[in-house]
Computed example of a mutant assay.
Amino acid sequence: MRISVPSIPEAILKSANAAQARAILPAEAVDRIAAFLSPGNAAVVTGAGVSVDSGIRAYRGAKGRYLNPNYKPIFYHELMDPSAKGAAFRRRYWLRSYLGYPPVRDAQPNTTHCALAALQHTSVVNKLITQNVDGLHHKSIAHVWDRARMDERILELHGQLRSVRCAHGHMTDRDAFQQQLSAANPQWEAFADELEATGRQPRTNPDGDVVLEGVNYDEFVVPDCPACLAENRHNNIQKPEVIFFGESITKEVKDRSFHDVENCDRLLLMGTTLATFSAFRLLKHAMDLHKPVLLLNLGPTRADGLQGLEKIDIASGVVMRDVVKAVLGAGWTSDPVVADMLQRGIVKPPPDDQEDAAPRVEA
């Protein structure tokens, strides 16, 4: 079985690096995005770039290449392999995820999340489809919408980190699972406490995986599923409710994403290189239906060069608050919910470096 990490075709990267993107002033970008969204009934697709201002690194930088060239994700078939080899992959995955989940869990919505929440609250954006698994779109609007409405209006295309499911279908809350990992690995719980106390946060990928060096993964214990134990069965084959590389999204999620595109009047994509086909095909589907499509991303994408696609090369955090004000006009000040949302949101991007600041375990 040969499975590769999705990437932007090399020809697009070379073309993008050879040609300078046309510089656009923020005010010009605001006007264009606002004009695009003002008719309403828009669907939005977001990617990892939208969460960068929350301190969560994107997979790829402004040149479209992986920021961490040594990134080696675990594939779905590796994680779910019942053999001893699969057990080794699970130990590696869950140790790294045990350390990497808290920074993602504790991340706060940034100004882009809150601006989009304002557009959702006012029904300018009727459906939001996110490739991100960090739950930040939910956090940005949870004080206004209940869970049922969030689940109806926000589709997590690639799943979420908030829960864990075993190979027999039993679900566990992620915080409870973190506690199980802590209880089974007191030495790593102490290490995690030290990281938090010293602020030595590992380099964390958007999926909650971290970079580690000098680690003996064989010593990490992945506990059995408690529900399986209650059924007199040992089973530590567990994964977060996230779509791994090599795993397909469910038919239900795929159909719903297509339905959301089909029922919108226009599609805005933000902070995504569209390297994964699950997102790229949504853009293609909208274009096949002759819907207006606007792509907002800093750097090259898989869609660059597609006829009929309009692209603005700028970071969403630079413009989205002003976009909301331009779309809603003077009315944004009279809506206390919108006014509050436009005051919310952090801007704390991760360090702009290319090196793996990997914590090392003392020998």
Rank of each mutant, 00 (worst) to 15 (best):
R2C: 11
S4R: 13
S4P: 00
S7Q: 11
E10Q: 03
L13N: 01
K14T: 13
K14N: 13
A29E: 05
D31F: 10
R32A: 12
G40A: 08
A43C: 11
T46C: 09
D53S: 15
G55Q: 05
G55K: 03
G55F: 00
A62V: 13
K63V: 14
L67Y: 01
K72L: 11
I74H: 06
I74Q: 03
I74P: 03
H77W: 09
M80N: 12
K85W: 04
A88H: 13
W94I: 07
S97I: 06
L99S: 02
Y101E: 07
Y101C: 08
P103C: 06
V104G: 03
A107T: 00
Q108P: 08
T111K: 14
T112D: 11
Q120T: 13
T122C: 05
S123H: 15
N126H: 14
K127A: 15
I129D: 00
T130R: 04
G135A: 03
L136T: 01
H137S: 09
H138C: 13
K139G: 07
I141K: 06
H143D: 12
E152A: 15
G159L: 08
G159F: 00
Q160L: 14
R162I: 06
S163N: 11
R165G: 05
H170K: 05
T172I: 14
T172N: 01
R174D: 05
A176D: 15
F177K: 01
Q178W: 06
S182P: 04
S182K: 01
A184R: 10
P186A: 11
E189F: 10
A190P: 02
L195S: 12
L195Y: 12
Q201F: 11
R203C: 13
T204V: 12
P206N: 05
D207F: 11
D209F: 01
V211W: 13
C225P: 00
R233I: 14
H234Y: 01
E241K: 04
I243G: 03
I243P: 06
G246I: 09
E247T: 09
K251Q: 13
K254P: 07
D255H: 08
S257Q: 02
S257C: 04
F258T: 09
V261N: 10
D265R: 13
R266L: 02
L268I: 04
M270G: 06
T276A: 14
S278N: 13
A279K: 05
L282K: 02
V293T: 10
L294I: 04
L296E: 09
G305W: 07
L306I: 12
L306R: 07
G308V: 05
G308C: 03
E310G: 02
E310S: 07
K311L: 00
D322I: 00
A326R: 15
A326Y: 05
A330V: 09
G331V: 08
G331Y: 03
T333G: 02
T333D: 08
A339R: 14
A339V: 00
L342C: 08
D353A: 14
